[in-house]
Amino acid sequence: MTAGCVLEAKDLKKTYPGCSEPALDQCSLTIQEKELFGLLGPNGAGKTTVISLLSTLLQPDSGRASICGIDAQTHPDKVRNIIGLVPQDIALYANLTARENLHYFGRIYGLKGRKLKLRIEECLAWVGLEDRADQRIVTYSGGMKRRINLAIGLLHNPRFLLLDEPTVGIDAQSRNLILEKLASLPQKGTTILYTTHYMEEAEKLCTRVAIIDGGHIVAQGIPRELMSQAGVSSLGELFLHMTGKHLRD
């Protein structure tokens, strides 16, 4: 593994049972330490498959992925200790309070006692939910749910954070807070892989991006360089330039 490299994925291929076409084919990605890496792609491009493979939820048919030097296929348990996954869904227990959710997931991450309490308070403060911590999730707004969903992924201070569209369908204030907080994470040592549909978000936030389409990485690099090479002025234009304008339903 290259020094300072958090993710090194090479030629990942995955075909789902019953499908003739691979969801992911010859996918190679490299993410350096403290990077905020954007994985962009239209619906069905293979973003979630990449996240699932890297978070050890799926095994690739071929290819390898190592996270912080640990092979994700042969040592999934070790990888799970150092990654944090924030799924696209609000993956919380709606009838538990935010604090109870944090407590449970914290215990699953192996935290306990004072350390767990402290991390719960820090995470609640980080997403601005200290005052509402003892309310059930079912009473939360969409933005609040997204914020606590993010906080759970950060409870154990992961070295590599996988975010699957963390700002879908939320109010502007919550989105702004999430983006601000995410931008501050690499300085604290957390490397981020981030998928989104919002190009302006990725352009503003990501140090590097990869555009995926049809299971293939079609472009990878620093946004400004990629835009310059394609002769476009925004990441949105680059995206349409690389993936086409036809609808992906």
């Binding site: 978070s55 050890t56 939820l57 348990d77 799970r80 200790n81 990654i83 996954l85 799924p87 696209q88 869904d89 609000i90 993956a91 919380l92 227990y93 709606a94 997931f105 699953i108 991450y109 192996g110 759970i152």
Partner: peptide, 13 residues
């Protein structure tokens, strides 16, 4: 269905 299981399975448990 709400992704909680998926999240749990990505955790060390």
């Amino acid at each position: 269905n709400d992704g909680t299981l998926r999240r749990l399975l990505s955790m060390p448990v």
